[in-house]
Computed example of a mutant assay.
Amino acid sequence: MDWTIEGELVWLGLVCAKDRRDPDGGCGCGRSFSGMSSHRATTTALVRDLPLTRDDLLGALIGHYDSAGYGLFTRAELIDEVDAMLDFVSSWPSGTIVERRLDVLRTRAPVT
């Protein structure tokens, strides 16, 4: 399922209580990524090597949460979130497809 905009940055969105109990039921947020501009969902993400800095990603994440109405996070928490995600995805080559199931991400074979 893909409701995001092609090429849009995605993030691990927040998971509702219903999906936290059963990621195969509920609304689907436990098995999807959140589009950072559209706030829509996709169940897969494509790893790309983009000319973005850490500060670019931090700004995008701040904008994402602000536009969604989540004023719950401090800048330090968001910096930690960006750094953790960058560390995590840095081992995946561009073209890798990623799927989510709650806090577990798994990869498919890279697109050739």
Rank of each mutant, 00 (worst) to 15 (best):
R31N: 06
L105M: 03
D49H: 09
M85E: 13
L58F: 05
D19G: 11
V10E: 05
R101V: 08
W11I: 14
V104M: 07
W3V: 13
L58I: 06
W11Y: 14
L78G: 00
T96Y: 00
I79K: 00
T107S: 07
R54H: 11
A60H: 09
S32H: 04
F33S: 02
S34V: 12
M85T: 14
D49A: 12
A41C: 11
W11F: 14
G63F: 01
R106K: 11
C16V: 09
R101W: 08
S38V: 03
V15C: 13
T96W: 00
C29F: 04
G28D: 05
D103A: 10
L50C: 02
A17E: 14
G28S: 07
D22G: 10
T53K: 02
I97C: 04
M1C: 15
G26W: 02
V89P: 09
T107K: 04
T74H: 00
D103R: 07
D103I: 09
C27H: 06
T74C: 00
L50R: 05
D19S: 13
R31G: 08
W92F: 10
S90C: 11
R100M: 00
D55K: 06
T43R: 12
V47S: 06
G35H: 01
A17H: 15
D80A: 06
R20M: 15
T96C: 01
F33D: 01
D80V: 02
G28R: 03
M36H: 00
